[in-house]
Amino acid sequence: MNWSKMDDVNSQYYFTASMDSGKTLCSLLKAIQFQETAVFCALPEGLKLTVEEGKCVQASAYVPSDNFTEYHVRDDVDVMFKISIAVLSECLNIFGSGEESSLKMYYRSEGSPLLLVLQPQSVNNVMTDCEISTQNADSVLELRDEDSAEVAKLVLKAPAFLGLLADLERSCDVIELHLSPEHPNVSIVTYGMQDRSCIDVPKSSDMVQSFTCENPVTLKYQLPHIRLIMKALAISSKVVLRCSSNGLLLLQLKLEKEDQRQMFSEFYIVPLLDD
């Protein structure tokens, strides 16, 4: 097989893609790597990897197709399989984190392995190809409920939000999110062993870029679940929080690359209900 003639093989393969640098993709994958396996889904619009934590948290990395120099998905089949996300990110990083390497991905058909061809930019004529075995995908949780209306939407600067989360006490289990059209608009409350801590953020704050909330709402989440987004926050520039009336929290994070293209990560977090 001649790997360089990509166009020739496109017709035979379910999915092929190539990229100049796999570095950003790798850090995005690491940000959602809190589970061993991910569901790899190649859509015509882009590539999406999804991991789930105990049916409570669903995290996805979404890479729009314009991040790839070439991107082909057969439109007559569903390209969806399970893959070890740890192995995948390790392969992308095979030349070390200091090395930019170009990346090509091939997936022939259902049941075949995902092939990666990596070529470091600084060294000529060095190439690695990796074969990562795949499994048939289970169904992915559909957490979004179309019937529940959105009750609040916030757009925050990711680094500042990360700073707030990092300051929360580690030993806490529960985080309470109070959103209100009145001042203070956002209030994050945690309960420690004996103490209560409260962080108030008015909508006039520099870190709040937009704030929409009609009626006061209080939502409770597991703090360990919220903590899962911290790695993704660290590489993102902006985060959108959406709360729906059933309490489901959706966080959408935008990662801006040097070439002006964007990658996204997305977290659905289910609420704690009052007992």
Binding site: L164, D167, D195, S197, C198, I199, D200, S204, S205, D206
Partner: peptide, 14 residues
């Protein structure tokens, strides 16, 4: 804090 953020800690007296 900066950005108009206010952090309040209610600490129990032992």
């Amino acid at each position: 804090c900066r950005h108009g953020i206010v952090k309040t800690h209610f600490v129990s007296i032992l």
